[in-house]
Nucleic acid binder design. Sequence first.
DNA 1: CGTAAACAGTGAACGGCGTTAATCACGGCG
DNA 2: CGCCGTGATTAACGCCGTTCACTGTTTACG
Lengths: 245, 245
Amino acid sequence: MASPLTRREVNREATLVDIRQQARELLVADGPAGVTLRPIARAVGLTAPALYRYYDSREDLLLDLIADLYDELSTSMERARDSVPAEDLKGRFMAVTMSFRTWARAHPREFELVFATPLGDPGQCKDARLEACGQRFGGVFQGLFVELWMRRPFPVPADHELDPRLRDQLHQWATDNAIPLPLGALEVFLVCWVRLYGMISLEVFGHLSFALTDVDPMFDAMLAEVANQLGLPEYAEHAPRLNRR
Amino acid sequence: MASPLTRREVNREATLVDIRQQARELLVADGPAGVTLRPIARAVGLTAPALYRYYDSREDLLLDLIADLYDELSTSMERARDSVPAEDLKGRFMAVTMSFRTWARAHPREFELVFATPLGDPGQCKDARLEACGQRFGGVFQGLFVELWMRRPFPVPADHELDPRLRDQLHQWATDNAIPLPLGALEVFLVCWVRLYGMISLEVFGHLSFALTDVDPMFDAMLAEVANQLGLPEYAEHAPRLNRR
DNA sequence: CGTAAACAGTGAACGGCGTTAATCACGGCG
DNA sequence: CGCCGTGATTAACGCCGTTCACTGTTTACG
């Protein structure tokens, strides 16, 4: 049988993607503040109030846009990962990380919207969608990290070396998400995440320009350092196939 | 002789600080987007167009507000530093760093405005004032770092270990600002800055909540790690006076 | 098949926004 | 005193998000 979607539903879906597309073009052109209803509506061939048939509010539309961008980023990172053979874990790690940075530099406005919009003080996300998107995004790093550790464990702090308060939180996190890693490895993961995010957002927001005109070499150096900490030897750099399992 | 300020000029100055004060209250209450002219004017006892006697535009007012916040942060960091005896460099380092984080956590809206507002793509700051404020802010860390290295040098990468592209930029930076440090030390400085900024902005923007409910212990751990890298021994923790000069 | 309900869309309107223009009052200086 | 720069006002323009009353069109059901 054919699709159970009525003609109206398919139209609706098309309009929805059209709206998001135009919203994004505005975002790119004028920044987050430039994403306003009337120009979006005009570009889609509607009037502003019509958008309320699709979103409860501008805020709601923005949330959907953020989710879209999150997904795009996650997809591009996954693709970068899968473009490297599964045995070459260092290659995959590098590919994913550089894909993150590449996306951020190519889409600073989008990066700003996704990563520098405070998620409200209630500690919870504003939206379950975003929670899921963040999960997927983090999962790319996390999955790679787990695989990395499983295949060839690297030195991590022992449990007793961790601050008990930190240890408890890491334990909670590990059990909640069934992450089969020692707590020390989780701490290493977080430290890596901090360095990666810190570097990229500093770069995108221009807070490294006081010292550097081109962040590339410093980013490469940081990546190499992190890779080293993760037990990914340097000699595999130009011959990634060497470290067979 | 009395002040060369006419009564009008002193009034003007008072109104200016009043404006910034009210603007900040709006910032705290409603976030950057809530800083709008009419409510500010109302709170100061004026109408919106009157503000144009004081600022060219809302943007200009925001810039001044940012500069104010920058200064407040710098001042509080300097005070934290000076509250620790000059010989206790580790204590000063800790004090300054924690003061930064404390300010960011206590003023998330302000932090967002100051640190997550992209400074325009032209590479240059929008404003010379901000340049100066950033200089002062960074100077607190930088001054401490220089003093640290001068008094007791810690291991840093040698010049030939640095990526030539990175080395050249660091050299440029060092000569432009007359920083009497080896290039490797500058790289260490940047890495520390990345970790510090990364951690704090991740915390403020809620991008660590996926794993941690309380960032305190992880921040402490990072601080300890950084201090260690900077040759600040741990045993000074509870007896900061031990390492006399 | 026909009809009622659900849906998509419109134009008008409200209050608020940044900003400009015309206008008035007054303090400081010659 | 007179004059000019300054501080402040009101009115207005065009934009914004959002609501409301209203009109067609599509879907679903008896």
